[in-house]
Simulated scan of single mutants.
Amino acid sequence: MIYEHITMRKTAIKEAKDLCQKHKSAFLSTLSSNQKGFPFSSIAQYIFLDDNHFYFFISDIAQHTKNLIKHSELSFMILDDGDVADVENARVTILGHAHKLSRDESRAQIDQFIATHEKAQQYAMLGDFNLWRVVVTRVRYVGGFGRAFWLEKGEWY
């Protein structure tokens, strides 16, 4: 029984990471800096690298960036390709903290971001776009009916 539980969790982690690799954008939620106590949702592109961190390349003037400057906490959901109305559609919700990286320390990741998101080349020429690394705190993976798991930071990394 314990072995079966461990196997199910390992499968959930693999499926969650595969879903994150497969997609390129997420429903991003930050804590509002001007509507105290309320979450703010947007859509943002990301890359998910072999270090198991997510990276967002976002403008300093975007509302979600202004929110992250004041509160590093965020969550974002990656939804599989199925029908949005289908409650059994696989999805991953990431909880974590975002940290802005300098252009110098993130050059390689910016290049990877541009390779994944070609239009980001335009953003890279602007001085107000920066890379933000997400350190995962906890992950909620729903792989379908009866397949919901909270995955802990130690399991993710």
Rank of each mutant, 00 (worst) to 15 (best):
I6A: 11
L31H: 10
E73P: 02
E152V: 12
F40L: 14
I61N: 05
F27W: 06
H99D: 10
K70N: 13
L19A: 06
L79Y: 00
Q45M: 05
I61H: 01
N89R: 05
R91S: 08
Q122Y: 12
R107T: 09
D86M: 07
R133Y: 00
E4A: 09
H53V: 00
F149E: 02
M8E: 13
H64I: 00
F149Y: 14
R138E: 07
H97R: 15
G127Y: 01
A98T: 08
N67V: 08
E73Q: 15
S25V: 01
H5V: 10
K66D: 01
S42V: 08
F145V: 03
I6M: 14
T116L: 12
D128W: 00
I2F: 04
H97Q: 14
A16G: 06
G127A: 11
Q63A: 11
F129P: 00
E152N: 10
N130R: 10
D104E: 15
V87H: 03
A120P: 00
Y157N: 15
H71Y: 12
V135W: 01
H64V: 01
Y123C: 09
T137V: 08
K22R: 14
R140I: 14
T30H: 08
Q45N: 15
S42E: 04
K70D: 11
L95P: 00
A44H: 07
D104I: 09
D128V: 04
I6K: 12
F57N: 05
S33R: 12
F27L: 15
W132C: 04
R9T: 08
F56Y: 09
H5F: 08
Y46C: 04
N67H: 08
L31T: 11
T30N: 06
Q45E: 15
R91P: 00
F56L: 15
E4F: 02
L31I: 13
V87Q: 06
Q63N: 14
L151T: 04
S106I: 04
Q121I: 13
A26N: 04
F54I: 10
K70V: 07
A12Y: 01
H64R: 06
V139Q: 01
W132E: 03
R91M: 03
K36Q: 11
V134S: 09
D111G: 05
A108S: 13
I13D: 03
T11V: 07
L126K: 12
E155S: 13
W150I: 15
D80Q: 02
A108K: 10
A62K: 08
Y123R: 11
K119I: 05
Y123E: 08
Q109C: 04
L101H: 11
G82P: 01
I58W: 02
I69D: 11
K14W: 00
N89F: 01
F57W: 02
I58P: 06
F129K: 07
T30R: 12
S75C: 14
G154T: 12
M125V: 12
K119E: 06
G96L: 03
A85W: 02
A148F: 00
E118W: 02
L19N: 04
G146E: 03
T30I: 06
M8N: 11
A90K: 13
V134C: 09
R9K: 13
H64Q: 12
I94Y: 02
A115R: 12
D86A: 11
N89H: 01
T116W: 00
D111T: 10
S32W: 08
Q112K: 15
K119S: 09
Q35W: 07
L31V: 14
N67K: 10
A98E: 03
I47M: 06
F54W: 02
D86R: 03
